[in-house]
Nucleic acid binder design. Sequence first.
DNA 1: AAGTATGCCAACCGCAGCGAT
DNA 2: TATCGCTGCGGTTGGCATACT
Length: 264
Amino acid sequence: MGRSPCCSKVGLRRGPWSTKEDSLLANYIQQNGEGQWRSLPKKAGLLRCGKSCRLRWMNYLRPGIKRGNISEDEEDLIVRLHGLLGNRWSLIAGRLPGRTDNEIKNYWNTHLLKKLKTAAAPHKDLPNLAAKPKKKKPKQKPTPPSPLKDESAADEPTPPPKTKVYLPKPIRVSSAFSRSNSYDSLASNSDGEKAAEELSYVPLQWPPIFELEEGDYGVCAAVGGGSDDFLDGGFILPVLNHSDSISSDVNMLEKVYDEYLQLL
DNA sequence: AAGTATGCCAACCGCAGCGAT
DNA sequence: TATCGCTGCGGTTGGCATACT
């Protein structure tokens, strides 16, 4: 099964782009805008597949692209964001103006990985660095309704926290909501309530905390810009596996959320 | 100078999400 | 509801450049 590669069509060029192709592509997009990648090559007079055109534009020709010389600040941000987000290169790139996901991915694989591996012992920001990348999970179904425990839970004596942070991947839940919805509108209007019901999501406080599966909690954080947004800006951060103290988990989630906010 | 090894990065591949029908 | 097609993402690869022997 599976679709055949789009570049497998006879007659389409592959490999490095010539300056002529670059200018054809750039000129076309300047005049007609991005999008319609499938039909773009033909209209622009290029013997390339749409995918290839998109990649070339996104990673090379797009205005405002910075090339090379990743600063220490950027590097630090990449490391910290990777600690929180994992290999979500497009999200990480979204926080680094002018950088592309491809560049950050390459930089991580060729510079940072090595650097951090040699920089002594295990690094807390680097979960399973040596681990083989996992295949994408199938789309997660919304969990059955499980509203957050009430405040009384927090009153109980809190044993030492036994929380375990699974870093990352953040879980996308954007499909349950319209992109035009904001968190506020969700919390206050009936559409929002309906959507929240569908997702078993009950925003009782900020940051909103979810029970994803029994005993697993997540927090929604604003991320801003891009297609991975939740409520036009967010997704569930690392899931905590709770043991027996809800309140300690909530505290931990708030801590994680605060740390995340500092990065933004 | 020539051959080989290593590093780097642009580009490709395959898959999943999602809207349209 | 199911299927199709387009788009975007993350992992991987191929080839050029540079370093090393």
